[in-house]
């Protein structure tokens, strides 16, 4: 069953007088429970594609369907609700809310979902334990290492029970050991909870862990292989 269906999407950016064709007609289908890496050089369109899949950006043309929701028919508010309930994001720069502790960052998404306080706390504690952050619940992002922050970011992305997690170069700022630990953790969640993971990366380790590798170059898919 398809979690993501993308049909002939195109996206052009205007930077001053320069027009950049970020995506030049992408067709892609990702099944539920997949663990996919989008690889390609910088500027190839990976992040743009990820943003469009996450409803953060809209294509100039083409169709995007995520978990049976077609984006062109949705308002900004609908897209925000979809991101809240169905999509988890992990960013290269962690992007935690700096004034909230680790557990509050994780709880925040559930707060938006309207989960009761006690349940929020219990689920946040459990997921932080799962990602190896026992005893560090009350630390603010500035008091955590890069790897620990990214673990909090992963916990925040999956605590809401999303159908899909979109990770934009999640290991780029981590050392290889920390990065591998994170990948193992996400792989485990993918296996146990059937959460679909799509990474944009040019990290060979991520590519090795992925079960499917989609290579993008100059806004087009140039290779799509399942391992």
């Amino acid at each position: 069953m398809a979690m993501v269906e993308i049909k002939d999407i195109k996206k052009t950016y205007h930077q001053g007088n320069v027009t950049v064709e970020a995506l030049r007609g992408i067709d892609l289908t990702v099944d539920t429970g997949a663990f996919v890496a989008l690889a390609g050089p910088s500027g190839s369109g990976k992040t743009t594609l990820l943003n469009i899949m996450g409803g953060l950006d809209l294509p100039d043309s083409g169709i995007v369907i995520v978990d049976n929701n077609e984006f062109s028919r949705m308002t900004q508010a609908d897209l925000a609700a979809l991101r809240l309930h169905k999509i988890g994001f992990v960013f290269q720069a962690y992007n935690l809310i700096p004034v909230l502790s680790a557990i509050e960052n994780v709880e925040y998404v559930m707060l938006l979902q309207g989960v009761p306080a006690t349940e929020r706390h219990d689920r946040a504690t459990a997921i932080l334990d799962d990602v190896g952050l026992e005893g560090k619940y009350n630390r603010r992002p500035a008091e955590l290492s890069g790897g620990q922050q990214q673990r909090v970011a992963v916990a925040r992305a999956i605590v809401s029970g999303p159908a899909i997690v979109l990770a934009d170069e999640p290991t780029a700022n981590l050392d290889s050991k920390t990065g591998e630990g994170l990948l193992l953790m996400m792989k485990k969640m993918n296996k146990e909870k059937q959460v679909t993971f799509i990474f944009s990366t040019h990290d060979s380790m991520v590519i090795d862990y992925a079960r499917r590798l989609v290579t993008i170059k100059d806004g087009r898919i140039v290779n799509d292989e399942t391992k």
């Binding site: 996450g54 953060l56 508010a77 925000a80 609700a81 991101r83 809240l84 309930h85 988890g88 994001f89 960013f91 992007n95 809310i97 700096p98 925040y108 998404v109 938006l112 979902q113 925040r156 809401s160």
Partner: peptide, 16 residues
């Protein structure tokens, strides 16, 4: 601004 972008990405409505 960047933080607000992240908050929007994880599903926070602008009104919130």
């Amino acid at each position: 601004t960047r933080e607000f972008g992240v908050m929007m990405a994880i599903g926070t409505r602008p009104s919130r």
